[in-house]
Simulated assay, not measured.
Amino acid sequence: MITYKKCTEVDLDIIYKAFQVGFSDYMIKLDMSQEVFIKRFFGPEGNELKHSFIALDEERPIGVILGGIKVYEGVKTLRCGTLCIHPDYRGHGISKSLFALHKETGVENGCKQLFLEVIVGNDRAIQLYKGLGYEKIYDLSYFSHSEPSSISTNLGTAYTIKEMDTETIGLLQPYIEDIHINWQNDFDYIKKLEGVNHYGVYGDTGLIGTMSAHTNGKIYFLWIHPAHRSKGIGKTLLSHVANLSNPAELNISFPNNASLEGFLKHLGFKRDKISQYEMYLTPIK
Rank of each mutant, 00 (worst) to 15 (best):
F23R: 06
F23W: 04
S24C: 08
S24Y: 08
Y26H: 05
M27K: 05
I28D: 12
K29W: 13
K29D: 14
L30W: 06
L30F: 13
Q34P: 14
E35C: 04
V36I: 13
V36L: 10
F37N: 02
K39V: 14
R40G: 02
F41N: 11
P44D: 06
E45N: 13
G46T: 03
E48D: 12
L49T: 07
K50A: 14
F53V: 14
I54R: 01
A55I: 01
A55L: 03
L56G: 11
L56S: 10
L56P: 08
D57L: 12
D57I: 15
E58W: 13
E58L: 11
E59R: 15
E59F: 09
R60L: 15
R60Q: 15
P61C: 01
G63Y: 08
G63V: 07
V64M: 08
I65L: 12
L66C: 02
L66E: 05
L66P: 04
G67I: 01
G67Q: 01
G67D: 09
I69V: 05
V71W: 11
Y72K: 02
E73V: 15
G74F: 10
K76V: 03
K76Y: 07
K76A: 03
R79H: 12
G81A: 06
T82P: 02
L83F: 10
C84A: 07
C84M: 00
I85H: 10
I85A: 03
I85V: 02
I85G: 09
H86Y: 03
H86F: 10
P87W: 05
D88V: 11
D88P: 11
Y89G: 09
R90Q: 12
H92Y: 15
H92A: 14
S97M: 15
F99Y: 13
F99N: 11
F99D: 07
L101F: 11
H102K: 13
